[in-house]
Design a protein around this nucleic acid. Structure first.
Lengths: 165, 165
DNA sequence: TCGGACATTCACGTAAACGTCAACGTTGCG
DNA sequence: CGCAACGTTGACGTTTACGTGAATGTCCGA
């Protein structure tokens, strides 16, 4: 009955395992690789894709940007482009001994992260504006309730039940 | 040269005026009406759509949810379904004199707004988690920078330049 | 009343982000 | 080594959210 077949490789997952761990489909993962969001995955002898923990983390990041933040894959690509540059930087970093150069590389990486954070904060700002507006509508409703409780003639607010436009 | 033709009606805007005021296209507005996000707009004698301030506000709300929050039109419909119910409540509110009933209606409206706020807050939460993760990566980089400045042998962190997965 | 700017309703086209099916190869327990 | 479960690459289909005409009607200042 049970016929599980985990891969022998150490810490490497096959596409379906990654997919169900992250709540993605295998097609989506292949698609992300197809459009360059992922570096081409490692392969087994027989061309099965194998994903390491880094790949899984990157996919989790992508899923977060897509589901939680609602970014399009194009926007995600822009945010990840920075990551690619950072990967290149990692190489350059290891390749040099020059203190100034290393400092510059790390500073550059910091700038890129700062840009990501700014993008996210911008989105948060706009969402908070919407929450404030909703709060205002809520307050308006509470005002109405108070009027009712006070047995006042209901003020003609043109919007009797506190419309949220 | 200038050949503007504002509508004679009081406070009512034609579709293109609404569109440019909100940064939408006329097609998008018609589409939103088509799929039921908007109630069918008022019309002139010759079937031109006319939008009042309430309609404009609703469209602004929709645009905010789409652009700022990244919700799909389906999700937006779910959030606005509450608004439709509230509109019905408005009717019921005006139709009754019973204090308890009015209180109940307003309380119900409050609940609906609270749900909207919760949805938005949930999204903010998830975004803030992502910001915290990015901040952690940033801190990791600063740590690296400090090591460089201190002229220490760079620790082999396996991720020399501070990888952001 | 006439013309140009704006509107209307089909209807088909498109880009993004996958879904789905076919035809075929791989892995690995029994 | 057999075969069931899983994987691979095309390639075409689907949904969402509109874009883009075409054919036609409306509004309104000159």
């Amino acid at each position: 009955m049970s016929h599980a077949t985990p891969p022998a490789e150490a810490g490497l997952l096959r596409i379906q395992e990654v997919a169900s761990e992250l709540g993605l489909t295998t097609r989506a993962i292949r698609y992300y690789e197809e459009i360059g969001l992922l570096k081409p995955a490692a392969r087994t002898e027989g061309a099965y894709r194998l994903f390491g923990p880094d790949d899984v983390e990157r996919l989790r990041f992508i899923k977060g940007l897509r589901d939680d933040a609602g970014f399009s894959l194009t926007e995600i690509a822009a945010l990840l482009e920075d990551e690619v540059a950072r990967a290149r930087n990692r190489e350059r970093f290891r390749a040099t001994d020059d203190r100034d150069e290393r400092r510059a590389i790390v500073a550059d990486a910091t700038t890129r992260i700062d840009r990501q954070i700014e993008t996210l904060r911008g989105k948060i700002e706009r969402l908070e504006t919407m929450v404030r507006e909703a709060d205002a509508r809520r307050a308006h409703l509470q005002q109405h309730l108070a009027e009712i409780e006070a047995a006042l003639e209901p003020v003609d607010h043109h919007d009797a039940a506190g419309g949220a436009r």
